[in-house]
C-alpha cells in the first residue's frame, strides 16, 4: 500500500510529462497481461460477429417474420423447417444445384488444372510471363469478370456465339436457357479457378522426389505408367487438398451466379445460396430465410467435420 503510494508520488514528481507516464503505465499493464490482451480484440470480433449472430440466426429461424410486417415475429417452433423439407418444392432442388455446381466445377478444374501443371512443369523461355498471365483470372474483380462473361454470353450480341459460328457450331442461349445455364456458369467458374488449381498442383509437382522417376526410366516404364504409378500416388495429398479447398468454396459461390443468371431462368440455377438471398432480401421472408441458413450451415458443418477428421493427422498446429 505504502509502496504504491510512493511510486505514484514519485512518478508525478518526475519531470517527465504526465501523458508519457500514463502511456508507460498502460504499457506495463499490457505487458503483464500480454497473453490475454493481445488476442482480445480478435476474440471480441469473433464474439460479436460470429457467436452472437449465430444465436440470433437460430432464434429468427424459429420465428415467422416478414420484414414487411410492422409487428415482427411470432414464435412458430420448427414450422419454417417443415416448410423447407416438405412444402417448398424448390428447396431440395436448390440443395442439389449447390452440390452439382460445386462437384462438377471442381472435377473439371482438377482435370484442366492438373493438365496445365504437368505441361508447365519444366523450364522454358517465357515461363514467368506465362505464369503471370495465368494469374489474371484469380486477381480480377469477380463482379467485373462476371459482367464480361455475361456480355460475351449474350445470345444475340455475344462474341461467344460468333466464335461458335466460325467453327460451324450453332448459337447457344448460354445463361438464358434452363438446359444450358448450369454448364455456362460452371464454365465461368472453371475459367476463374483453374489457374489456382494449376499453381498449387505445380508447387506440388516441383517438390516431388526425383529418385522414383530415375528408377522408373531404368526399368523402362512408359510415360503413362510413370504417370499412373508414380506421379499420381505421390501427388495424392496435394490433390486431396485442392479438392477440399475448391469444394468448400464451390458450395458458397454467389457473385457469378447472382450477376450472370440471377438464379434464373425459371430458378434453374438458384442454388441454396441464392435461394436464401432471394427469400430474405427479395421476398422478405426473414424467418424462412434464416431456417434455410441454418440448414446450409449444418450441411457445411457436417462436410467440414468430415474433412477435419480426415486431415487431422497432418494438421500441424
Amino acid at each position: 500500500m505504502i509502496q504504491q503510494a510512493d511510486s505514484s508520488v514519485y512518478s508525478v514528481s518526475k519531470t517527465s510529462p504526465p501523458q508519457a507516464s500514463a502511456f508507460n503505465k498502460l504499457l506495463t499493464v499490457l505487458d503483464r497481461n500480454i497473453r490475454f490482451l493481445f488476442p482480445l480484440p480478435a476474440f471480441l470480433i469473433a464474439l460479436g460477429l460470429f457467436i452472437y449472430p449465430l444465436f440470433e440466426l437460430f432464434r429468427i429461424s424459429m420465428c415467422r417474420w416478414e420484414l414487411t410486417t410492422t409487428d415482427p415475429r411470432t414464435f412458430v417452433w420448427f414450422a419454417n423447417f417443415v416448410q423447407a423439407f416438405i412444402r417448398d418444392t424448390h428447396f431440395w432442388k436448390s440443395v442439389w444445384l449447390m452440390l452439382y455446381f460445386a462437384f462438377a466445377s471442381v472435377s473439371v478444374q482438377l482435370v484442366t488444372g492438373f493438365a496445365l501443371a504437368l505441361m508447365l512443369n519444366r523450364e522454358f523461355k517465357g515461363e514467368s510471363v506465362v505464369r503471370m498471365l495465368l494469374l489474371f483470372p484469380i486477381i480480377a474483380t469477380p463482379v467485373a469478370m462476371s459482367l464480361t462473361w455475361s456480355m460475351m454470353m449474350n445470345p444475340f450480341m455475344g462474341v461467344l456465339n460468333y466464335l461458335f459460328s466460325l467453327i460451324g457450331l450453332g448459337p447457344s442461349e448460354w445463361a438464358a436457357n434452363t438446359a444450358t445455364v448450369m454448364p455456362a456458369l460452371i464454365l465461368v467458374e472453371v475459367w476463374h479457378w483453374t489457374p489456382f488449381m494449376m499453381l498449387v498442383l505445380l508447387a506440388g509437382l516441383k517438390s516431388l522426389p526425383k529418385d522414383p522417376y530415375e528408377a522408373a526410366i531404368i526399368d523402362g516404364a512408359s510415360r503413362v505408367q510413370v504417370f499412373f504409378k508414380i506421379t499420381l500416388p505421390l501427388m495424392q495429398p496435394y490433390i486431396v487438398l485442392v479438392i477440399i479447398l475448391r469444394l468448400i468454396h464451390g458450395f458458397r459461390v454467389f457473385d457469378k451466379i447472382f450477376v450472370i443468371s440471377g438464379g434464373g431462368p425459371n430458378r434453374a440455377s438458384e442454388t441454396l445460396n441464392l435461394m436464401i438471398y432471394h427469400e430474405a432480401f427479395a421476398a422478405l421472408n426473414y424467418g424462412y430465410a434464416s431456417a434455410l441458413g441454418v440448414i446450409m450451415l449444418v450441411i457445411i458443418f457436417i462436410i467440414s467435420l468430415g474433412i477435419f477428421r480426415y486431415r487431422e493427422r497432418d494438421w500441424s498446429y
Partner: peptide
C-alpha cells in the same frame, strides 16, 4: 462460413 447465412443476422 457461407457468408449469406451470416449476413441474415
Amino acid at each position: 462460413a457461407p457468408w449469406i447465412v451470416f449476413l441474415l443476422p
